[in-house]
Write a protein that binds this DNA or RNA. Structure first.
Lengths: 136, 136
DNA sequence: CTTTGTTGTTGCAAAATGCAAGTGCAAATA
DNA sequence: TATTTGCACTTGCATTTTGCAACAACAAAG
């Protein structure tokens, strides 16, 4: 881990995921059912492969993701959320809500509309369903 | 504004404040009563002056902060939150909560403890008090 | 008239990012 | 067996951003 700029919890958090890519990887795992390097590479934001490797290794080192051999394909890895990673859900939902509110070109889809109606319920529901696949 | 990587609301949001400094400036305005360039410079994370100028101009261009001549001192500027900026409160609170939970060295202070007890109440209460000083 | 406070700017080295191509290796296919 | 495909990186290099320190413009205060 890089050394912290301060003990402020906001600053500490940003030291970990305060960049343009980390939370997009988390989003892919959390909300889009993605779990592998090749799936992350195909996301529409077009992350570069070296950045992806770098971020995956940081997220793994921070115990936000765990990397394991795929049960289905032994020459493949799958990344899963830890509890610490799953706990990022409220942050991701709030960022999504703010972004949907202030961007004309991001029309709210089903989940966005549900968030607008009852954010707390969406977080509760999703965090329940994440529990089933959280590792460690 | 830089061009967007995608229409995903999370991606759009990170295009705006997805870096290590923007949300610390927002924190200073939102929770620490700071409002001027010189106050931001003195924060413990020690932002460089060129980065600060750059971020303030982005936040202003994005209509998250407004810059005005200080009523008290005509040779000074004050930055205030717009409604769009104040709406970042839930994000900031969630990030603070996560950071406090997973960092041994960030003992929860009063606000952190209140968040742990009743996050929704803290957000509601603070957003009420922000309303009084939001511009536009 | 000089000092202080405030908001910047400039220059430069170091680090991070973006992009394209290449590598290693196991599984699938011919 | 030989070849191809899929997957997870690695490398090289140009561009951009960051970090650090010094300098500058200008109004207000003393």
């Amino acid at each position: 881990m890089d050394k912290k700029r301060s003990d402020c919890p906001i600053s500490c958090s940003l030291d970990v995921f305060g960049d343009k890519w980390s939370l997009l990887i988390i989003r892919d795992v959390m909300l889009r059912g993605k779990s592998s390097y090749s799936e992350f590479l195909t996301s529409e934001e077009k992350i570069a492969s070296n950045i992806l490797v770098n971020r995956l290794s940081i997220l793994e080192a921070e115990n936000i993701l765990v990397k394991e051999v795929s049960p289905a394909n032994k020459s493949k890895f799958v990344y899963s959320l830890t509890q610490k990673g799953a706990d990022l859900l409220p942050i991701v939902i709030e960022i999504m809500d703010w972004g949907a509110k202030y961007n004309a070109n991001s029309p709210r889809k089903e989940i966005g509309k549900k968030i607008k109606r009852d954010k707390a319920a969406v977080i509760k529901e999703l965090s329940q369903s994440l529990k089933a696949r959280v590792k460690y």
